[in-house]
């Protein structure tokens, strides 16, 4: 065998020469349709073969390939008859049970993944489904994907534009007012409660706002020079967080400013008080608003109103 590899001379006893030629032919026909003449030339120039192949032998090989499950096509291209392997038994096929396992893992990890990771998985499975015989198998994944209903190309564009802090106008399908055009100075794209949001400064409302990406129909315009003047003064709210740090998951507009006896002090900056309320309320009794006093007072009132409303409905 070593001698064979060294001298590149075939020793029939040491290998199946026919089997080898069949493998060479198979992989050559996988590349693209080939004519008999091209196949002969390839065999002649092959370092281990150095010989032509007769048309009868070629037919025997092709019949053999068909018997093992290959679909071999013969067609006329530019007036020349060419052979190609259209499908073969080594193509990747994925079983329903395998996809179910994949979906199960995805459901466990998806809430802890970054937007980039979610997007990567989406793109990977999309590409993988184009490379397998049974692409419909991934429908089960589409049903549980956190990016379900999100236009992936649009999402990628929004991420790029947000990174550049661009000002854009987009068409939005609002549940309240129907289709409307919205102009925003972009901040970032992020995940909140398993939903994908576009964050930015709204020209209409003059404060920070968030929009469900799945409701964005299309981008209508990207302005070269932003002309939105941020008129609202951002409010900086400091709160003490006393829960587990692993559950904190700081957002882009948040930072830990110091540690306290019981936990950490986090500062959240936004022009939208509603968004701040939502964030701090979500921590329930693990967060205590420290400053500013005016906001703390307002927050306590929200809690009092909430308590009063529990049994009223």
């Amino acid at each position: 065998m070593k001698e064979f590899l060294k001298n590149k001379k075939v020793t029939y006893n040491l290998m199946s020469f026919t089997g080898f030629k069949a493998l060479v032919l198979f992989s050559y026909l996988l590349e693209s349709p080939k004519s008999y003449k091209e196949i002969c030339q390839y065999f002649l120039e092959h370092p281990y073969l150095n010989e032509k192949i007769s048309i009868d032998t070629l037919r025997v090989y092709i019949t053999s390939l068909k018997r093992v499950g290959c679909e071999v096509k013969r067609e006329r291209i530019d007036g020349v008859s060419k052979y190609s392997v259209v499908s073969n038994p080594f193509e990747l096929t994925i079983a329903q049970e395998q996809v179910s396992s994949l979906v199960k893992v995805y459901k466990i990890i998806s809430n802890d993944l970054t937007l980039e990771e979610l997007l990567n998985i989406e793109l990977f499975l999309k590409r993988l489904s184009s490379k397998i015989k049974n692409p419909e198998i991934f429908e089960a994944f589409s049903r549980v994907s956190l990016l379900k209903g999100v236009d992936i190309e649009l999402l990628q564009e929004l991420i790029t534009l947000s990174a550049k802090k661009k000002q854009i106008i987009f068409q939005y399908k609002s549940p309240r007012s129907g289709i409307k055009n919205i102009e925003v100075l972009l901040s970032n794209v992020g995940i909140n409660n398993s939903k994908i949001y576009l964050y930015g400064y709204s020209k209409e409302y003059n404060h920070d706002a968030s929009y469900l990406v799945s409701r964005i129909v299309k981008i209508l315009d990207v302005k070269n020079e932003p002309d939105i003047l941020i008129q609202s003064t951002p409010i900086v709210v400091g709160f003490e967080y006393i829960g587990d740090l692993s559950d904190l998951d700081l957002k882009d507009n948040e930072k830990i400013v110091q540690t306290s006896d019981r936990g950490v002090i986090v500062e959240i900056t936004s022009t939208n008080e509603f968004m701040i309320n939502q964030r701090i309320l979500g921590f329930t009794d693990k967060a205590k608003v420290l400053y500013p006093q005016s906001y703390q007072k307002q927050f306590i009132n929200i809690l009092k109103d909430m308590k009063a409303g529990i049994y009223i409905g």
């Binding site: 199946s16 026919t18 009868d56």
Partner: peptide, 20 residues
Amino acid sequence: LSEKYNDSCIKIFEFLKLLY
């Protein structure tokens, strides 16, 4: 002739299938 196949050719591919 068109129905003739080669036994070694079949075996090498069946072996590959088992491996895959």
